[in-house]
Write a protein that binds this DNA or RNA. Structure first.
Length: 103
DNA sequence: ATATTGACGGGCA
DNA sequence: GTGCCCGCCAATA
């Protein structure tokens, strides 16, 4: 499909292990910084795709509260499994784990 | 083809 | 500093 979903998936799939990305970041990389909602919408369908949607979090560094796999709790475990530190219950330090395309 | 929804972001009160 | 509201784009029903 030539939908933006595929485009978004391609970007999310490029996120290196041990790093995270934000919806705004994906939206920007996919072409429009305003389509953050569309990114989330695409993630909602990522269940059937091999996309590390658990590495995609809020621009605030918080995990998605409506995560469709097992809730923020499951996502948090996945991130910690990647080597990412999760503060409190559902917050990631973007200053350390935010994925940078430049690298 | 139209309306509603949908894992959000950023701005303003 | 926190909370609330509006806006945006695309997909699905």
């Amino acid at each position: 499909m030539n939908t933006l979903y595929e485009n978004i998936y391609s970007i999310v799939k490029e996120i290196p292990l041990g790093k995270v990305s934000t919806y705004a970041q994906i939206a920007f990389l996919s072409g429009n910084p305003r389509r953050s909602r569309v990114v989330g919408f695409a993630m909602a369908s990522c269940k059937h795709a091999n996309v590390p949607c658990h590495r995609v979090i809020y621009s605030s560094g918080e995990l998605s509260k409506n995560f469709g796999i097992g809730g923020t709790d499951e996502q948090r475990l996945l991130l910690e499994n990647e080597g990412i530190e999760v503060s409190g219950q559902n917050t990631v330090d973007l200053n350390k784990f935010l994925w940078k395309m430049e690298e």
